[in-house]
């Protein structure tokens, strides 16, 4: 079975983002970019399925400008077999992303599609669910365990009250949660080998998808700053302050 994995290039999670002075957006000039952590987990899961003999091929897809090839190469170095870049200079919204991916799914006919549960830039948590809707497939979101059994995939999901397990008919869509696995590091020989793996470049026009805006970004502001606090010297003082000053206990 073929596994399709999606990856997104985002601001490195260790970098604290700054809002532009004119409040039009966040400032992404000269900041370190990386593979979205949830996507890294998705790649790892796909590679593990291949190592377990369940997946025959792992195809990685990313949408964005030429720079996203760097993240595709990272995924290839981690064990994916080939890459697809859908080249666009825009930052398509989730529904457009899902429409582009649905076309790739139709072309590639994977048995399983694995995405991260959310990208740490837009924090949307939408693309996987939307792709599932457009392809009519079942969705196993926030997965902490994935088991392929015959014509079905059993997905243990992290839900508010604990864990829930669902069985989905293959082909299906899975989105990863943090505890699904611990991604490996790419070794230097694998990074070198990844440079030779095939990488196709397509455009939204090739796929017959018109990118449409569903929202307009009016403003981006920094969150309200918290007023500086104080340090107390003892537990006694802390309890006194909470009782008499903050009045919360």
């Amino acid at each position: 079975m073929k596994v399709l994995v999606t990856v997104k290039r985002v601001l490195d999670y260790n970098v604290k983002v700054r809002v532009k002075a004119d409040q039009t957006d966040v400032d992404l000039t000269n900041v370190k970019m990386a593979l979205n952590p949830f996507c890294e987990i998705a790649v790892e899961e796909a590679v593990r399925l291949k190592e377990a003999g369940i997946a025959s091929e792992v195809v990685v897809v990313s949408i964005g400008p030429k720079a996203v090839q760097e993240q595709i190469r990272t995924a290839l170095a981690l064990g994916a077999d080939r890459g697809i870049q859908i080249e666009t200079d825009e930052m398509p919204e989730s529904l457009s992303v899902a429409k582009l991916l649905a076309k790739v799914v139709a072309e590639e006919q994977p048995g399983l599609v694995i995405l991260g549960k959310q990208a740490i830039d837009s924090d949307n948590n939408q693309s996987g669910q939307m792709l599932a809707a457009l392809t009519g497939m079942g969705q196993g979101t926030f997965a902490s365990e994935v088991k392929v059994e015959g014509e079905e995939v059993l997905v243990t999901r992290e839900v508010d009250g604990g864990l829930q397990t669902v069985g989905l008919k293959l082909p299906a869509i899975v989105t990863t949660d943090l505890r699904l696995n611990e991604p490996r590091y790419a070794s230097l020989p694998n990074i070198m080998k990844a440079k030779k793996k095939p990488l196709d470049v397509k455009t939204p026009a090739d796929l017959g998808v018109e990118l449409r805006a569903h929202t307009e970004l009016l403003k981006v502001e920094p969150p309200a700053e918290r007023a500086g606090g104080i340090k107390v010297a003892s537990v006694e003082e802390l309890v006194e302050k909470l009782k008499n000053e903050a009045k919360v206990i």
């Binding site: 939408q126 939307m130 599932a132 809707a133 926030f142 999901r157 508010d160 929202t215």
Partner: peptide
């Protein structure tokens, strides 16, 4: 915006061919 809501609404939005605004 619970795990149930987040699981469901993007699927609803895509079926209606509209965007979704999260949280």
């Amino acid at each position: 915006a619970t795990t149930t809501g987040k699981n469901l609404l993007p699927r609803v939005a895509a079926l209606l061919d509209v965007g979704q605004i999260s949280e």
